[in-house]
């Protein structure tokens, strides 16, 4: 699958690849109302990674349902809609509205965005709030729910368990790691905001460790995310216990990344038919 926020609404990449070949498309986070996003600069490169502070810029649910979902509906690939809210009620409302869309095959609940003042990661660092959000979404929809977890916690399994108890059908991990980069001339942040979320190969070992911990703590499938650039990287997540993976930052580097990784993964499975034990 392709990771939320790194693949736009699918349309942007449809010029470069056959979207039908993807396992699933996870949309950028959608909020109830349009969001402007954060002041620029929103991106800065760091060693083997990047910091972003996009701030969930999107045109809101209505626009998504009218303009973007119909485009995704043209493809065989399942659409997973990623939702974000500032309050529990907003998450519930989003889930309720999306539950009427048969095109939407699952909802990924972003309780892990580090780049917004309200909501976002604040939910995902607290097991009680995690439960509240996921329960509210659970009550609003019958669609499968994926809780997307933040790595910015002491013990991710506590949050993972809370999400599963509240009714999550799967977990995805990890979202970006809060980071900072300073301008040596001005002493100020190199982003328009003080902090940003780190992604890319730099975070992969952390993501693999967290997926490994989660896979042993919960019975639901775990989707591995974090710095996957090659088929081998994906294998590492699968070996750690992930049942699927999402490709994020790699899309920016190589527009063919998800399909290349898929091909490399196939190749690995052929060469190591038993290592992965895929059922």
């Amino acid at each position: 699958m392709v990771a939320s926020g790194t693949f736009g609404w699918g349309k942007e990449y449809s010029e470069y690849m056959d979207l039908n070949k993807l396992g699933a498309i996870v949309t950028k986070s959608i909020t109830l109302k349009p969001r402007e996003g954060n002041p620029p600069p929103r991106i800065v490169e760091t060693p083997s990674g990047m910091l972003n502070s996009i701030g969930l810029q999107n045109e809101g649910l209505e626009h998504f349902l009218k303009e973007d979902l119909p485009f995704l509906a043209k493809f065989d690939t399942p659409t997973i809609v990623n939702i974000a809210g500032e309050t529990v009620e907003e998450y519930a409302e989003l889930a309720k509205r999306l539950s009427k869309e048969t095109m939407v095959k699952a909802i990924e609940v972003n309780i892990s965005c580090p780049n917004v003042k309200q909501g976002g990661m604040a939910f995902g660092v607290d097991p009680g709030l995690t439960k509240q959000v996921i329960s509210a979404v659970r009550n609003a929809t019958k669609q499968p729910i994926i809780a997307k977890l933040t790595p910015n916690v002491t013990d991710i399994t506590v949050i993972g368990r809370a999400a599963v108890e509240a009714g999550a059908d799967a977990l995805s991990a990890i979202n970006t790691i809060v980071g900072m980069a300073l301008d040596l001339e001005t002493g100020k942040s190199r982003l328009g905001r003080e902090t940003g979320g780190l992604s890319g190969p730099a975070i992969r070992p952390i993501a693999v460790r967290m997926v490994y911990e989660l896979a042993r703590a919960v019975k639901v499938p775990v989707i591995g995310i974090g710095g996957i650039m090659t088929g081998n990287d994906a294998v590492e997540f699968l070996l750690a216990g992930a049942r699927a993976v999402q490709v994020g930052t790699a899309n920016f580097v190589d527009t063919a990344a998800p399909l290349r990784i898929l091909a490399e993964l196939h190749d690995y499975v052929h060469r190591h038919p038993r290592t992965l034990n895929l059922s």
Binding site: T6, G8, E12, G37, P41, Q57, N251, F252, T255
Partner: peptide
């Protein structure tokens, strides 16, 4: 500053 270059990441606002 850009990441994707094709309008997908909303990074170059």
């Amino acid at each position: 500053r850009m990441a994707c270059g094709i309008g997908a990441c909303k990074g170059c606002a």
